[in-house]
Write a protein that binds this DNA or RNA. Structure first.
Lengths: 122, 122
DNA sequence: CTCACATATATCGCTTTACGATATATAAAA
DNA sequence: TTTTATATATCGTAAAGCGATATATGTGAG
């Protein structure tokens, strides 16, 4: 039960990192580094910096978030907020994730039973 | 509730198609075209031909499945069977998917509540 | 019989995602 | 002062999934 290697685990999360970031931003204004920490704390999933910042730029280009440079505590940070489009996207993506999981379960659960009852010899 | 566009939906499934194929093969010997149909019937998820066949070659190269050309009904088909390694992979991948989903839920469910209660103006 | 259609497998080029590596700069802590 | 955490960014690379395309065979309609 040691799980998959890094490569496989990475692919498992493909396409869901966006949703995680949008979810964190639903709580209110956040900047990149804090988003990274919050995702890690809440889900155990680490979004690498080389992934996060291009991802945020993409979300901004798609109009799902808005960004402004601000210095609250003497330090410049790029603050992101969800747009209405971002909120809509979060809802539909979450619903699709639920559906995807349900479909996955429908396929995988019976398969696991099969494998347990009739292991391969080779 | 019309869901995501094709592009987003595609990415949502990244890394899970392997698992679906392995799951179908847990039931017994299958060939590519029948795998495609079974996945679609059981999960509603269509694996495109341009995805499926390279995917099967990959699984074979990784030793997760074994392939043999056979002609049951006069027609040549490439039959695939799960190896023991493939069965192990199915188990670990399924477990990881469960875990990934749980993490996703931990992040997304509270976020959806937020979005519903406090919609954005912009 | 022939022509259309479903079946069946395969490859190529393209786009996108996520990552590691790397760079830069500032605040905090030792 | 020197290290460490914070903070953002870009570049090149690897891999997945897809559309397009190719090829060939079985099946059913006319």
């Amino acid at each position: 039960m040691n799980g998959l290697d890094d490569k496989s685990r990475r692919d498992l999360f493909r396409g869901s990192l966006d949703v995680m970031v949008l979810a964190v931003l639903a709580d209110g204004k956040q900047y990149g580094y804090s988003i990274q920490k919050r995702v890690r704390d809440a889900s155990g999933q680490t979004i690498k910096a080389g992934t996060l910042y291009p991802l945020l730029h993409r979300l901004e280009a798609d109009g799902l978030v808005q960004a402004t440079w601000e210095s609250d505590t003497g330090r410049d940070r790029k603050w992101y907020t969800l747009t209405a489009a971002g909120q809509r996207r979060l809802k539909t993506a979450a619903a699709d994730w639920q559906a995807a999981f349900a479909r996955m379960q429908a396929l995988v659960l019976p398969a696991l039973r099969q494998v347990t009852n009739h292991p391969a010899a080779n």
